[in-house]
Amino acid sequence: MTDSILLTTLDEALRWGKGKSLWPFTFGLACCAIEMMSAMGPDYDWARFGADVFRDSPRHADLMIVSGTVTKKMAPRIRRLYDQMAFPKYVISMGACASAGGPYVRGYSVVDGVDKVVPVDIYVYGCPPRPEALIQALKQLQDSIASGKVRH
């Protein structure tokens, strides 16, 4: 029955809907959070892409943007916030620090990459990435969700 036309189209419609109605989580860590706010702002206006409902509680959100350096003291808290999010949930690792430690990788209290803490779907490079880069990451995530490449 899974091959029938009705089921596949419904599945596809669901995936399309999931991708186009992401609710991001207001979660700023460091410098990249300012660029994330710029992306929300009037010039870049990422509400155009259907992800403008920023939620303050992890239980309402399904997209976590890790924007900034992850320190060892913060990492367990990030894990806890991630565990509190309801499925489906996605993670964008924004910037060099969150992706690989960035300029702080030699430090004693910095986690080199948020992928050691939570599973990451999209990495964005740059220190900090421009808002355009973040918007591209969002578009990429939406496309991968719609085409079924990313499932959670």
């Binding site: 460091a30 320190t71 003291k73 808290r77 030699r106 430090g107 004693y108 209290s109």
Partner: peptide, 14 residues
């Protein structure tokens, strides 16, 4: 505080 302690002082000395 201390959730964003990124060792700026130590790294500058390195």
């Amino acid at each position: 505080i201390g959730y964003l302690h990124r060792n700026a002082e130590k790294l500058s000395e390195m």
